[in-house]
Nucleic acid binder design. Sequence first.
DNA 1: AATGAATGAGTCTTCATTCAT
DNA 2: AATGAATGAAGACTCATTCAT
Lengths: 200, 200, 200, 200
Amino acid sequence: MSSTSNHKHTAILDAAYELFGSGGFYETKMSEIAVQAGIAKGTVYLYFKSKEELFMAVTRRDCEGFLQQLQEKLKASDTLSGKLSIIAKHHLYYYYERKRHTKLFFRAPNNNPELVAYMTLFMEEYMQAVVKVLLEGGASEPELMAQSYIGMLDRLKMDILFDPSFMEDDAYKRAGFAAGLFIKGAMDYLNLGQDDRPVE
Amino acid sequence: MSSTSNHKHTAILDAAYELFGSGGFYETKMSEIAVQAGIAKGTVYLYFKSKEELFMAVTRRDCEGFLQQLQEKLKASDTLSGKLSIIAKHHLYYYYERKRHTKLFFRAPNNNPELVAYMTLFMEEYMQAVVKVLLEGGASEPELMAQSYIGMLDRLKMDILFDPSFMEDDAYKRAGFAAGLFIKGAMDYLNLGQDDRPVE
Amino acid sequence: MSSTSNHKHTAILDAAYELFGSGGFYETKMSEIAVQAGIAKGTVYLYFKSKEELFMAVTRRDCEGFLQQLQEKLKASDTLSGKLSIIAKHHLYYYYERKRHTKLFFRAPNNNPELVAYMTLFMEEYMQAVVKVLLEGGASEPELMAQSYIGMLDRLKMDILFDPSFMEDDAYKRAGFAAGLFIKGAMDYLNLGQDDRPVE
Amino acid sequence: MSSTSNHKHTAILDAAYELFGSGGFYETKMSEIAVQAGIAKGTVYLYFKSKEELFMAVTRRDCEGFLQQLQEKLKASDTLSGKLSIIAKHHLYYYYERKRHTKLFFRAPNNNPELVAYMTLFMEEYMQAVVKVLLEGGASEPELMAQSYIGMLDRLKMDILFDPSFMEDDAYKRAGFAAGLFIKGAMDYLNLGQDDRPVE
DNA sequence: AATGAATGAGTCTTCATTCAT
DNA sequence: AATGAATGAAGACTCATTCAT
């Protein structure tokens, strides 16, 4: 019974993940989620009180999985650059894995303070995980740096999502590039004169 | 007549920009836009065929303004680092100015291929503008670098949007930080041993 | 325009009166009311915010009409018994007139405090109208007497509603009977011994 | 088994009486009745074919109890006025006891002909019980008189239902008043001149 | 060109009822 | 007999769009 219950619960979350992810919140009908999950419309409401609550649950599961896996993977390295590399690989591979399920990352209902609060929390936690790594390297401005790194990765993932020919290996190459660029800076990729320095 | 027509056209775009931007596509009603524009509901349809088309027009006007202003500003510097700094300042200041219109960029209708195509085009153009700057510096992998830089900036803008206490000056400081980090890399902010280098 | 507007407003109230009255609140669909009023479903919501509000409006209109007409008619007599007779005739004739429209008098949504409050107010006003008449006759216990009279009339109306063969004249005869019974008591209709008196 | 069966049957009726009575037919969910009865939802359907049938059964049990108790109590008096007094006391006390179940009698499903038929039958039986008493007193128009008396009582019960401060004694006082008014008429409570008589 | 009253397709959600266990 | 998970029909309400004026 518990396993049946869990099974349907999971099936609904999976269906909702797929449909919300590729279609967005408003474009996805509860009836479609039910069909996708292979159950009746009313059954969805036995497991989730409303469409918004279901969306929250999907988001939460995804974000938590992302953070948990990251923490796990970070244990594999002791160096700063190793850890930054792991973060990059994780970020890009995570979306690579989900490219078929989630083309457009979530278009959420606005005006839902609970969801906004959760997303803020998630970003904060993700950022703190990166901050922690950076602090071990003795970084000043670790929060700005963490934001920057995450931003880089988040943009670099886009092609992965939209380009069907993107392969796993390409994802890892991008990760390497991102880590390298972040640490060594653009100068290594450029021909800059000694004094060509950014001015504030 | 033409000026009257233009006037209403602009009033609708302004109203839609304000409301779509702060409320999102689905949350904004055509009737609200009409009220905000000071005209009747039916009149909106004399200027824009549908809600989606109006959203497209709003997006287009905004993105074009973004790119045009960027091109204009880039003329002010001849050095790579100067131009990168301009890009950063532009990106962050642009959002700073538009704090209240946050949501326009995330909360679009999804299943509209035309909009997706346009956003892709915009991103491509923005990226090419950055690529051009980087190529002048002799960059290898200019597209990846451009994406990374834009990603950094896009993430660093977030606090600007959500933190009401963020001031213009803070935006410029962030821009300086971003340009510096991008060019010189994280090492300048860290205490790394000689051999602590990222592994691909 | 105003007359058009009023026309639809009235048409909806009429339709709702008919359908709520004969079918009850829950049994009546908003779509049916729209069809009966000869308009589209959505139009009902231009005039009434919700089904409950429409029900309230129907109830209010009916009750107010009932009380206004009563006040008007009461002016026609100066004696107590004349006024009681008018009350009886009004009560019974009112339902006689509406028998085709309103077989089952309103089955209201429960748990609607606003409606309960209004119905209480209506009953209070109706009762006070009767109380006033009784006080002019120097009655002691006028409220209990008013309640009793109204109760009598309300029960005597039932056959009028359900018996299709009931005619206008029958309604007036009943009214006369009710007034007589109320004033002179049952004794006139009975063969009671001198000492057969109710014991408290 | 039969006793178990009977036990559940009764438990469901009790639960339904409580909930239908205080909440109304539509507002009460079968699942709530099951919870209140301490059984599973599906079990209700082993004893009652449908929600409407259950409502019928509740109504029937209540009405039958009302009539049986009345018949029983009427044996206690041999005089007309004694019996009318008993009827009044019974009617008012019955509702006094059931204060919490107010709504059962007004909030029935409408379009159920079976229920309408039963309620008509009940009213007929109640009326005939009163008619029989009146006929023993030699009444003319006994049915109209019975209706009137019942109507009086039914209205006088209202305050009992809605006024929480109403006590058992108050109910009995009202009963005495009602019986007195019905028999002796309003004249005893008024200052009417000899010729102030109702005009038909 | 401008209006805004009218439309009706579209979707979430509820809950009586069923049936496999 | 008892359960309660699952069903799906049904209906209130919204809002983009139209069109008579």
